[in-house]
Design a protein around this nucleic acid. Structure first.
Lengths: 144, 144
DNA sequence: GTCTCTGCAAAGTATTTGCACGTGC
DNA sequence: GCACGTGCAAATACTTTGCAGAGAC
């Protein structure tokens, strides 16, 4: 039993979700990934270890996890939903050329979000800061 | 000729886009709307005045306008893309119950975004801050 | 006159649904 | 044992494409 397996198990238990093989596999995959995979990519990535896992299970599991706040869904504008493991507040930067996504940590995020939460009369549950631009490689390609 | 018509015309000219009846209609609709309509909603809204406008024209025009920075596309998580006229930086708050969207202005946004731009090595072209939560009405319904 | 835009229908793609079976607790 | 989760296939919904004709400049 790996550590990440135990971690995944603990998270599921904590949320009162049944710890099935598939859910643990999906959660482990997302915890170890630094990428921001799509439902399809996760499905394909699990195909080797779990050849029988179905698309609907992956979709169902990902949306369940998102509801529970275990994952953050992220829409980058290319029509597919990407997922990342829910971390401390951070900024996602999306490259408009290669669709790559990176995370930026900033000390300014938390105080900023607190300000905004004070300024809206709504009850805020979740937040997302997204930048669009050009990554190193694509910037270089565009300006030779 | 209404003022908003002239405004729309000026924007199209400025971007070097041909000023067709359909484009002016779509742009006017989005400039006067305080809402954040979907492509379908825009198509339906224009049906009375322009019964022959087609879905593909609306989609094509909206994505063209987004490319040019005239509009901001906004994905709220319900699977459809919404559009708003490109304003000064602001925060979008999305109600997870009724899918309503509101805008929040905050003096803290611009300085915050400047900080983040300094903290990433990427070339930032555009930014979006999105909060998810409960609007007044839905909050009241949830906590009677 | 030229080139871009429009409209139609048809295709493509991500995601959801219904339902029978299987599995964790 | 019972509820919840899974897998399959088919359906749905949003968006895109190809192409002929029309309209802006």
């Amino acid at each position: 039993m790996s550590t990440s397996n135990d971690d995944a198990l603990a998270i599921l238990r904590d949320k009162g979700l049944k710890a099935t093989t598939q859910r643990i596999a999906i959660l482990e995959a997302l915890m170890s990934e630094r990428a921001h995979p799509t439902a399809e990519e996760i499905h394909d990535a699990l195909a080797t270890e779990h050849p029988t896992i179905s698309r609907s299970t992956v979709y169902e599991t990902l949306s369940r996890f998102s509801e529970e706040g275990i994952l953050d869904p992220l829409q980058t504008g290319d029509g597919v939903t990407r997922f990342e493991f829910h971390n401390h507040p951070h900024v996602n930067v999306v490259c408009i050329e290669c669709q790559q996504i990176a995370d930026v940590d900033s000390d300014h995020i938390t105080p900023f979000l607190e300000h905004v939460r004070d300024e809206t009369p709504w009850q805020v549950l979740d937040q997302q800061v997204k930048l669009r631009g050009l990554c190193h490689a694509c910037k270089a390609t565009k300006q030779p």
